[in-house]
Design a protein around this nucleic acid. Structure first.
Lengths: 232, 232
DNA sequence: TGCAAATAGATTGTACATTATAAGTTCTTC
DNA sequence: GAAGAACTTATAATGTACAATCTATTTGCA
């Protein structure tokens, strides 16, 4: 196949699927917003079919909800949903971590510390950037795992959680805890202590999830204050 | 519009999506088989668009793989994939079980025992039926869980695993173990001992997964024996 | 004020055009 | 004469345009 179907350095422009997905995760399209196919088609300069297929795929991923004859909506994000996602992470991430501890190299540890240094340097000055670095910290530990299904699932969830947490303020008390927990985790990994590392990670996720839920709940309350009773 | 859009008792006929999904899970379309849209459209008496959207949705669910300009295929089922699925279950099911142990009623326990009785009565005479009953046994424990995301994920995986195991013979030695483990599990639940129940369940899944992988590997070897080297 | 019919707008399904891949054939070259 | 590259052709995926159907809102009337 010398046909160079996808030229080497020329980066292919993103598909409609990727663009819509990005719009949702970046918050440009907000949760629960209606997704009209013809509108999206115009917006992305294409016909309706690519949009329809993109929406179906996103539905399969759980990012979009489609009701028959009523069209598609962005999945509503409520505290319950966040709880569900983070509780799954609570079970999955220690599993992913164990393999990393088993196979970690000095280079891996150096890279992990480098990311952690960047997080501490930034010191929560930029919320979005912090979320990105934090994702990279966890990504670094899981990306080489042999279970691609589990890794992909975690990635999906991470993108959703990242999208939410990027628009949430982290309480000062929480900030110190994050840095401490990360450092403890690195230390346990260096010692190749699987159980200890898993325990620290579990606690870390539990704290982060609880904090995110609380902040989200507060934010939703502020929003709903301006609205009438949502007795639909 | 008297067309009885959704009449009360008249069960709506399955959608194209459901039919294709069913064909895959029941084995009527085998793993790695090519899925041509126009062919499927003819087969199900519809035009191409519904088929395309169904395939995209199935792709989002991970049941179908689509490569650009080359169309869709049923996800290849290899031992690695089975391992990935069952290892996720290994982490998720104990989590789901804990809630059940916390909230279990005497009626729940009776129902669970009833299913187990049916399993023992059947005594592996019908492989497909056994798989179905076994699914119901686990389903019974998880279906009321508050985490719908986790439950749906487990259901998806269960359907895939069920589809595979329905076409695999269970070794006699394994049969006794299954019955014993189920009984032990019921007992631990009755005692409301979460940790004990979770430990038994973990072991149960581990055994089942390992057995399934081994059998699948053997079956694939038998298949490949008749073929030339698969250097493609 | 409450209900029913009409209407607007969006979803869903059908038909067709375009484009890309893959296989088969012919022509060139060693 | 055989091997391989280039061209041709068939087939299926991808994108466009349009028709039919359904939902929700609004308007008119009792």
């Amino acid at each position: 196949m010398f046909s160079a179907s996808t030229a080497s350095d020329e980066q292919a422009e993103p598909t409609v699927y990727e663009r819509i997905r990005n719009d949702i995760l970046s918050g440009r399209i907000e949760a629960n917003a209606r997704l009209k196919v013809s509108e999206l088609a115009k917006r992305h300069g294409t016909s309706t079919n690519p949009v329809r297929e993109a929406l179906q795929q996103l539905r399969g991923e759980g990012l979009v909800v489609i009701s028959p004859n009523q069209g598609a909506r962005v999945r509503p994000i409520d505290p319950d949903f966040v709880r569900d996602v983070y509780e799954i992470g609570l079970e999955l991430e220690p599993y992913l971590l164990r393999w990393f501890v088993d196979t970690v190299t000095p280079e891996d540890l150096a890279e992990l510390e480098s990311i952690q240094d960047q997080i501490e340097d930034l010191n929560f000055a930029d919320q979005a950037l912090h979320t990105q670095l934090n994702s990279r910290f966890h990504l670094m530990m899981y990306q080489a795992h042999y279970n691609r299904l589990a890794f992909d699932l975690w990635s999906q969830h991470r993108e959703i959680m990242g999208a939410i947490s990027a628009r949430i303020t982290i309480a000062p008390k929480r900030r110190d805890a994050i840095l401490r927990e990360h450092r403890q985790l690195i230390e346990a990994i260096r010692q190749q202590d699987k159980d200890k590392a898993a325990a620290i990670l579990r606690a870390h996720i539990e704290d982060a999830g609880r904090h995110l839920m609380d902040q989200l709940r507060a934010q939703l309350l502020r929003k709903d204050a301006g609205r009438p009773t949502s007795a639909g």
